[in-house]
Amino acid sequence: MHAFAYARPATLAEALTLLEKHGPDARLLAGGTDLIVGLRQGAIRPAILIDLKRVAELRHVIDEVDGRIAISATAVMAEIENDDRVGRHFPALVEAAHVVGSVQIRNRATLAGNICNGSPAADTAPPLLVYGAVVVVAGLKGTRRVPIDDFIVGSHQVALERGELVTAIELPLPDRRLGAAYLRLTRRHGTDLASITLCCAVDEAGTTRLAYGSVGPRALLFIDESGVLADPGAPAEAKEAILERVFAEARPSPRSIRASPEYRRAMLRVLGARALRSAIERLAGG
């Protein structure tokens, strides 16, 4: 690993000042599970790392405020897995957090980092899209809230301007009953990067939200308000026709060594149908 400088700001203002000063020469360090791999492989060569773990404002890990759950930028996957409120309202996010690497990784990797790293295969992106998460972005000029669908831009691209950082990811508490499921496809049963990530939620009003990733530059969200997908009694062909349209947007890389485009497209259909079935069952099961 090359030599770099390291800063450990104690306040958000300090962090933002550093970030403004160093611009693209700086990288933010939260869990480090992607960042340090990038440094190790020489893929990135920042001059300075700004460690966010001791920023006072980011210490409140997971909070419930004003009808939403706020997950701080320093909250790690293990905390999300074990949080009752997240588990109660956003079980598919817990399912996704639970498969991010090994226990050791989940003890370090943050939700915000998983999103800001911008990997198309980020496990938590589909559930965050499905649950309508909002990314809280702070800069010296103030704070803005960006819907996750706008925040994720492309492969390793997110909607952060120079001098900005993510302080939290907020999840609005659902106002309807939901059934949701997260599924992924891997090359072995053990920990692996997913070649498909897929989350599906159906609500009692008949709306289906389905998001999938790892088959294009970014995870994509689709909302079906026709009621067909969510309807346990709807004919399979009708559902397949809708899913076909949903998955037509997939653009799997032909260069990937993890799975061929053909296989990924086929697996979207398989996992899509399974996740939908599971979401419907869970809604029915309460």
């Binding site: 791999v37 090359r187 072995r188 049963h189 053990g190 920990t191 692996d192 990067l193 060594i257 993890r258």
Partner: peptide
Amino acid sequence: LMEQIILDETGRIRNLGAIDYRIPTSKD
């Protein structure tokens, strides 16, 4: 079930290292 070294058309190993060369784990 899972292991293979994958070469690109110029003979470079594409799955060098533990991230993309998969061996059985306790869950396999």
